[in-house]
Design a protein around this nucleic acid. Structure first.
Lengths: 186, 186
DNA sequence: ACTGTAGGCCAACGGGCGTTGACATCCCAT
DNA sequence: ATGGGATGTCAACGCCCGTTGGCCTACAGT
């Protein structure tokens, strides 16, 4: 293992401040100067450790969806399980909201978002849908509903969605996701 | 009626350029200077006619969803009709994509988006769901799926979604919207 | 104890931004 | 024909941005 550097605390502070700023302000308004101010250091340190603003964003938007294995549970529950998991995942930290905000106006952010869903959601769906060749399409349909919920609830804050209880959301969206994954093609 | 002003052409050119820039670049990167350049006039004209950048955005984001009346058609078709309408509406011009882009990073854009869906989608749903008191919540669920589709297809361009034929999308999302509107509460 | 280096700050750069006010030009009503 | 408001250009303002390079400082290896 590499020995701990003295600067590790600073690096971490920068990253944390960056995640918060990207999440709340989007790419353009999250300035290096404001991130540095939040982290209590000089803007030039950000450049030293992350090269430039794009490098900082790349480091700040590492995402792990931590999706559960769907193979071992009753087929009729996977919709609810997935929706529940995404809701919890979204509320655990701001990184996903940040990625969503950035992906909308920044091509690098959009690319990261595509990669996350292709590499992490795609494989999980492969085992549960009727024809494995259709897995990417079904995963994308699931993404459209999950991201739509995240967008209206956490970003746009459309009142009825923002105020619904998690269980209600699961009850409504679960069957949708379930159908996108397991129903015969319409 | 008020007589036509000589400047109407310029005003229209500014508005068109603004819509395109807001749609493709989002609020921050759509600069007044670039909009003026597209419109072939001086940036100060934008200020003269629209006051400031916020005023320009407000003028450029007037939206008409043109939703059809749902009362007169078979209840089991309203999901497909709605999804079809939204797809066509989204492809007709860039304004909706622009509003989506701006709503994600700009509070004024988010507010406009909330208003559009509350005032235009809300009333249409009131007539078709079991309990009128629940109409806002059901409209919001519909919005979550419709906006999720728009986000993944037109903004993030998630490949499987971006490449699906409109009929396929209608076949998959129609039943979802149908259920959100007409099913008994789960 | 000495020294090299990693960690950190400061001041400045070039550039783009939104916005403003002074000035030129055109066209229409008189 | 001419005066005046509408239309448009130009140059500049103050501001904040990302980024750079020089300069202290303090610690770790010898």
């Amino acid at each position: 293992m590499t020995t701990a550097r003295r600067s590790d605390a600073t690096r971490a502070a920068i990253l944390e401040a960056a995640r918060e700023r990207f999440a709340s302000d989007g790419y353009d308004r999250a300035t290096i100067r404001s991130i540095a101010r939040d982290a209590g250091i000089d803007p030039s340190m950000v450049m030293r450790y992350y090269g430039n603003k794009e490098g900082l964003f790349a480091a700040a938007s590492e995402i792990e969806l931590d999706l559960p294995e769907l193979g071992g549970l009753p087929a009729r529950h996977i919709g609810a399980v997935l929706v529940t998991h995404f809701l919890e995942r979204w509320e655990r930290d701001d990184v996903l909201t940040g990625l969503l905000r950035v992906g909308v106006t920044n091509e690098a952010g959009a690319e990261r978002m595509r990669a996350v869903f292709a590499q992490q959601l795609g494989p999980v769906t492969r085992g549960v849908c009727p024809d494995p060749a259709e897995a990417p399409r079904r995963a994308a349909l699931v993404a459209s509903q999950i991201l739509g919920m995240a967008l209206t609830r956490y970003v746009l804050r459309l009142p009825p969605v923002a105020e619904m209880a998690p269980e209600e959301i699961v009850a409504w969206l679960g069957p949708t996701v379930q159908r996108y994954l397991t129903a015969e093609a319409p």
